[in-house]
Design a protein around this nucleic acid. Sequence first.
DNA 1: TTCCAGGGGTAGA
DNA 2: TCTACCCATGGA
Length: 319
Amino acid sequence: MATTTMELAPAGAFRFAETAYSHGWVVLAPNAWDPDAPAVHRVHRLGSGRVLRLRATGAAGGAAVRADVLHRGPLSGAEEREIRSDVRRMFRLDEDLSGFHARCRRRGGRWAAVADGLGRLLRSPTVWEDAVKTICTTNIQWSGTKRMVRGLVGAFGDPVPGASDGTGSGDGALPPPEGTPDRAFPAPEALAAATPDELAERAGLGYRAPWVHALAREVAAGERDLERWRESGLSTPELARELKTVKGIGDYAAATLLMLLGRYDELAVDSVFRRFVGETYFDGAAPSETEARAVYEDWGEWKFLAYWFDLWQGTEEEL
DNA sequence: TTCCAGGGGTAGA
DNA sequence: TCTACCCATGGA
């Protein structure tokens, strides 16, 4: 067993721990969060199908990312480049948030802290993983989302070599938090090969099973290229319309995916948003959706981030 | 037991 | 475009 270490520098201000623990994604399988290190652990599947164990920690005092990759057999140059690219994408190291930070600085007060390197929200290496996880956040409590994603990974993910029973503490060199599944996020082909009923029964997806299965089948068959959404030349409303052609993705899920794609000009209106805005800006009353949206209107292309850090700064919530 | 969650699809107006 | 109704599942 060998470990390859790589250090990845961001474009602009960056804070490792705050970026990793910026929203729920850090605790959704196959990711796991170790708050003491702090570190993000992940069983990671490369395009070739090879499965590795990955650990990301802060470097340069948290201003960069250190990635340790545990592997059997040599890691090719192409594989190392792929991992670098995946980690850069997960931590959004190439995203330019200077415009958002400038806005926060002008606002001052508590927003000045946001300008100091916050704003990058953790995401998955693939749009596929982000899309499935987003569907698993709809009309369910957060504990249910974690259960469904854990179920998908446990039942349909490829095991990391050396894992005995699919769960456990794994390899000693990079011990992930206890109880973390030793499996990668399932490839579209793996979910397409199952039936919708199997997705419902083995992962507990409920009525979302046919939607996730249909998306997996379309991606596996090459009928849908989700990665194209990353560099789409479409306007945000046009892209949102395309996202919503996926069954299971409506207004909320489309806005969440737009955020994951690096577009922040749409708000994800869900029960959390409505409750927070009502309590914070309407004295506990329930505003109309139009009134609630208006709270962040002047943030323009940064609406989602403004809402998120407005919400996030006031909570000590454990994910 | 009932309600509802980090909503969305569908039918019918 | 808007509204009512339905949808699995588990936590509160």
